[in-house]
């Protein structure tokens, strides 16, 4: 599975960077940066990040 953020929806709230800081961060301009790949053990944090996204812009590609 890979993380995918819909940039058309993302509003740079940054809640994902609190829930899953290893995968999501905001750069100096406040713009979201993220990694597509993550270790299996981090799935829980990725799912938390998806939940707390106020605009629901985070998706898992290849999700069952």
């Amino acid at each position: 599975m890979k993380v995918w953020v819909d940039r058309n929806i993302c509003d740079n709230h940054g809640q994902c960077a609190i829930a899953a800081p290893d995968n999501f961060s905001l750069d100096a301009d406040g713009v979201l940066q993220y990694k597509e790949d993550f270790p299996d053990a981090d799935l829980e944090y990725i799912e938390d990040a998806m939940d707390v996204c106020p605009v629901q812009a985070i998706f898992l590609k290849g999700e069952q």
Binding site: N12, H13, G14, Q15, A17, I18, L26, D27, A28, D29, G30
Partner: peptide, 9 residues
């Protein structure tokens, strides 16, 4: 930017 609040959290 939200980064400010995260930084201060």
């Amino acid at each position: 930017p939200p980064a400010r609040l995260i930084q201060l959290r």
